[in-house]
């Protein structure tokens, strides 16, 4: 007996049909990222996605940036970490608005998390918005957050072989910051080798060595931010030619 409606017909052999779909797996994230990008552009907000391994100095770089640029920009920060509000607390103490996103088991931020955080943060027109991703050189590379530029931060203590080890991350970078240059005399970090690897993955990408601690070269970081804000640099016009 047919189990569907109880008629007297014998049950049919289960047959299947194949339906073609052809849709990118990250289509939903990418649509939301575009929505974020459009809504930020409408309010002339410049958003940058900061990615690095844990401890490279993203938060320290942002603390210094807040302190140095507060006179000319409203700086807002979305902080991503698995747990704690340590980083958002640091940014607030530095004088900027910040929202902490805890990803729990998650290893990266996605467009939905940034979208929700933006509703809470509500950055004003013309703001400089930093999204500090979860410390991780793998997963964050795959997720568009609606930013205008992606910045990868490494520190000299991590070693100069990171680009080839983490090609996806360096392949999407609009700027590569090499932090902690004040420690260069104490570590075997070959800056030329590092730059060569980074540019093999992202031709023409600017590699910017600086020290958040001493302030060496931070003016070049601020010049990059101004370029992105004026849409002269970053993803809007492709990577700039390196120095």
């Amino acid at each position: 007996m047919c189990l569907t409606c109880g008629c007297g017909d014998a049950p049919a052999t289960e047959t299947t049909e194949t339906v073609l779909v052809e849709e990118r797996l990250l289509a939903k994230n990418d649509r939301l990222a575009e929505h974020v990008r459009d809504s930020l552009a409408a309010r002339e907000i410049t958003a940058l996605n900061l990615m690095s391994s844990p401890g490279a100095g993203k938060t320290s770089l942002l603390e210094r940036t807040v302190a140095d640029l507060a006179w000319r920009h409203t700086v807002c920060v979305i902080e991503g970490d698995q747990e704690t509000s340590f980083d958002a607390d640091r940014i607030r103490r530095a004088g900027a608005r910040a929202v902490q996103v805890n990803t729990g088991a998650g290893c990266h931020l996605d467009a939905a998390m940034v979208h929700r955080a933006l509703h809470e943060l509500d950055p004003p027109t013309g703001a400089l918005l930093f999204v500090e991703n979860v410390g991780n050189l793998v997963c964050p590379a795959l997720f568009d957050l609606g930013e205008r530029a992606k910045v990868v931060v490494v520190s000299v203590t991590e070693g100069d072989d990171k680009p080839l080890k983490y090609p996806h991350m360096f392949g999407v970078a609009d700027l590569v910051v090499v932090n902690k240059t004040d420690l260069l005399p104490y570590v075997d970090f070959d800056l030329a080798r590092f730059e060569e690897q980074a540019r093999a993955l992202r031709p023409g990408v600017e590699v910017l060595p600086l020290s958040v601690r001493t302030g060496e070269n931070v003016e070049h970081w601020y010049a990059f931010l101004e370029d992105v804000a004026a849409e002269r640099g970053g993803a809007a016009h492709g990577a700039r030619v390196g120095t």
Binding site: T4, D9, T16, T18, V19, V21, E23, L25
Partner: peptide, 16 residues
């Protein structure tokens, strides 16, 4: 590339 290509579904039978 990272895409969903197709889905194979159980055909919905109807009684004649």
């Amino acid at each position: 590339d990272l895409a969903l290509v197709s889905v194979e579904l159980v055909r919905e039978e109807s009684c004649a």
